[in-house]
Design a protein around this nucleic acid. Structure first.
Lengths: 230, 230
DNA sequence: TTCTGTGAACTGATTCACAGCT
DNA sequence: AGCTGTGAATCAGTTCACAGAA
């Protein structure tokens, strides 16, 4: 697992930092839209809900893009973060599963920010074949390999029922996709080198339930409005 | 911030552990469905994609529910985790936003596992009012406060466009909801004591894009199939 | 003077490795 | 003999606090 050789500028950006860069980026874009030219770590930290020292350390991993006594130039920082995240290019995305979730994803306005392009929306159910979603015609799952090759898909999104997820994932991996975003409630098995990220509604709810229960249990006095289970 | 008094059994379960318990629970339920009575940390760890020492340490925070030389009893462990997560009771959930995402959430089969009950699906758009989704009629957002009170809602789910999210959140909080699951791409502002969890598609994609770019950049030899941007 | 960039201290999470129970 | 439960070692991430640039 050792990298082949030490590379020029250390790109060893901590995972935790990478996960926050998109949040900073969004806040910066909002500032830019309002015509704001410069921002301090204190202010940007506040609007993104992090500690300002953490924000500065995060940004310092990209290089020294701030000006002491002044702050960060909004446009320049947007560019630097975009570049670091790989958003100065477009990535091709294929979504499998054209149920409500798949459709919601396909319709996701402009796909967040720029940087992504939906190449296809596929489903196994012939009943939805040809439906138009977000200007795209739903294709058949059997064309997955063709689509990935032709459109140079690099990110596969799985929005199928749990039972179908592993098979779809295998097909993505087999065709050369190395990044998968999984919305199905299963743990996917992939070979090394493939990145999987999981988004799981019921896990999120269960985590919230845990904290709700705790509030209800022991700290009633500190939480005058807390509600219990039904 | 000191708890009023030391409470009987230490419930200081690490956040990282809490986030994994739902994953273990799901795997255990699958084992239970297959009639398997007992499982070792090694095996359960493998199917959930974690290290077995981590799994044992996680479970040890709940108590000593394993048997040395044997493993864990599946049913008993399901019960213990469910109890710890607060799933032996039902929690009432209100979803705001009846677009594709809101509908996808409402249809989410049995809401993951048991433990949750959708009390209402609300929207501001009069065009979707009265639509039936997952056996539920879409209500008007103005009834939010009524619904929360009447149905004793403890978890609010925000599936609205970004612009509406903070206002919906404020109304939830104002009415006494202390747990919020936010799908809108904004950082929500809440008073202390309110838990917010965020699920953000575009952030997940951007994190994947970062790793894709890295693979494409520097490790071509280790990743023969990796695709670049389009 | 203001605000960045960063060593140093700290806190939390993971992994190792093995003692001890069944 | 096999597998749990857990101290001890390690690693990652956060926060503090301040030196130094503009």
């Amino acid at each position: 697992m050792t990298p082949p050789e030490p590379r020029p500028r250390d790109r060893g950006i901590p995972e935790a930092t990478v996960a926050r860069l998109p949040v900073y980026l969004r806040a910066l874009q909002a500032l830019d839209d309002r015509g704001i030219l410069t921002v301090s770590s204190e202010h940007l930290a506040e609007t993104t809900g992090v500690n300002s020292a953490k924000l500065r350390k995060d940004l310092s991993h990209l290089g020294s893009y701030g000006t002491r006594g002044v702050g960060y130039e909004v446009e320049y920082l947007i560019y630097q973060i975009s570049r670091e995240l790989g958003l100065t290019q477009d990535w091709s995305v294929a979504i499998v599963g054209a149920g409500n979730l798949g459709r919601a994803l396909a319709n996701y306005g402009g796909f967040g920010t720029r940087g992504f392009r939906i190449a296809a929306l596929l489903d196994a159910d012939t009943a939805v074949l040809g439906d138009t979603v977000a200007g795209l015609s739903v294709g058949h799952i059997d064309t997955l390999e063709d689509v990935v090759d032709r459109e140079n898909v690099s990110i596969g999104v799985i929005a199928t029922p749990a039972a179908a997820a592993q098979e779809v994932c295998d097909r993505f991996v087999e065709t050369g996709v190395t990044s998968v975003l999984n919305f199905a409630p299963v743990v996917l098995n992939v070979p090394p080198g493939v990145d999987v990220r999981k988004v799981d509604l019921s896990i999120e709810l269960q985590i919230l339930a845990f904290h709700e229960q705790r509030k209800a249990d022991g700290y009633a006095g500190l939480d005058p409005f807390g509600r219990g289970p039904v």
